[in-house]
Each structure stands twice: as structure tokens, then as C-alpha cells.
Amino acid sequence: MSVETAKILPLRDGAGTKPKIVAKNVQKYFGNVLAMEDISCTINEREFVAIIGPSGCGKSTFLYLIAGFEKASQGELLINNELVVGPGPDRGVVFQEFVLFPWLTVLRNATLGLDIKGVPRQEAEERARKWLRLTGLSGFENAYPSSLSGGMKQRVAIARALSYDPEVLLLDEPFGALDVQTKNYMIQDLQNLWVEANRTIVMITHSVSEAVQLADRVLILSSRPSRIIADVAIKLPHPRDLRDPQVRRYEDEVTALLSAEVDKAMKRERQTFAGRS
């Protein structure tokens, strides 16, 4: 099996140099289908890493492996040098489709992680309110999720994941279910939040602009079975503006790498199809 291990580039200023998440030759089969061929990478402490790739390449699966929802078929995945064996409160997860608890108010959704830990109610509310404020949800504490728009729901999900103070924040296409205007507004609006959160963040996305605007590093995955084909460090200060020519240059670079991969995947698909008929 050919392995094209990612080249680990130097880190941005400010991010730690201590490895937080380490994947070593991770392989994942679904039944007989090889979804992930060989993924090796190191994500450092307080780094914001975006993982991007063609649709269906198993980006989300990689995130679920880190979260501990799925198990790797081969290889190992370490967090803080310890093997991931299952989900745990050191990792907070935000899903594309929000997955709020509809029977809880915004505030109760946000305090749930702390309630589960047994933090006293008053302290839990105080800590949750801080994140609700930072995500722009002040005044909505007592609303039920069903009365909120998609963008607001996702803000709740982000606040919920941050309020119990996980070391790692995992974002699974967090803006994927939102309309373009809401999405652009939220990306802009939440830029400082990630700086404020100041922790290791892994974001799965299929949007290049999202990736280059938010992340310190962009890992590009190949189509299925996936490998890391490029590792691009975005050495620009936050907050970033998409109209900034430097950001544009990174966007073009990642787009070029990605579309070459999509082309290859399409060609291969066409060949297999032609070979079959």
C-alpha cells in the first residue's frame, strides 16, 4: 500500500508545539469497503485545523474516530498520548445538523454538560451564560430550540460544546446546513470566538473559503479511500477577511490542490464505470 504521509509544516505563532491529537496509520473499513486508507497526522495543542476533501471521502468518519464514536480498523489514534477508546468530556462535538435537545431550553442545553459533571446549578448557569453571550445568544436563554433559526441553533450547539470546557473542539461541517448568507455572517461573527476559546479545534468542511478563513492549517484528504494529500499552513493573523489578497492566495492554492484531486476521482469513477459496462 502506497503511503503518502503528510508533511508536517511549522506551526503558526501562538499555537502550542505540544502534539495534542496524533493519528498513526489509521485505517477504517466499513464492512469490506475501505473508507480510509492510511491517515497519519499530528494536530498540536491550540491549533485550529480544518480538514477538507471531496464529498464522501470520509472526512466526518475521521472526526468520529477522534470523538470516539467509531473505532479505527487499523492504526492508532492518540489524544494527549493516550489511546482513544471512546467518547469523553475532554472532547466537545458540534454536528452539522445541530442535534440540540428539543426538550431543553437554550440555557439548559448549554448547561447540560456541566449538569452531567455535577457542577452546581448556579455555577453551571454562569459558565454557560458566558458562552451564550460570546456566541451571541444573550436574551434567548429561555427559548426552546424549535423556535430558533438554523443559525441560532448552531450557535447553541457551539455554546453547549464549549461550556463544559473540553480540551478539544470537534466541528463536523458546522456551517454546512446553513444558507449562504447566514453561513458567511456566522463565520465572520464567530472568528473571535475561536480565539477566545483558545483550544485545539478540528473542523471538517467542504468549503475552501471557510477553511482558509478560520484555520491555522488545512489538511486536504483524497477521495475514498482517503489519505492526506496536502497540509497547508495558513500563516495569517485573525480575524481574517476573505477579500484580503493574502487570504485569496491561500484559497486559490487549496482550491487548486482540491480540484486536482476531485478531477482524478471523477476520472477514476468514469473509468470504473466504463470498465464495467
Binding site: P87, P89, F95, F101, W103, L112, G113
Partner: peptide
């Protein structure tokens, strides 16, 4: 029930009892 609701609770470190009372029961209400 959306299995991701269980995932969210697990990643908060919820015990079986907590998952039952806080997610499953209200989720299947």
C-alpha cells in the same frame, strides 16, 4: 431517536443512568 443525541451525551461523559433519564426518556416522550 437520532443516535447523535446519544453521542452528544456520551461526549459529555454521561453515565448510563444519565443517558437514560436525560436523553432517552425525553427523546422518546
Amino acid at each position: 431517536l437520532n443516535v447523535k443525541m446519544l453521542w452528544v451525551a456520551w461526549s459529555m461523559g454521561a453515565s448510563r443512568r444519565q443517558v437514560f433519564w436525560r436523553v432517552i426518556i425525553p427523546g422518546i416522550f
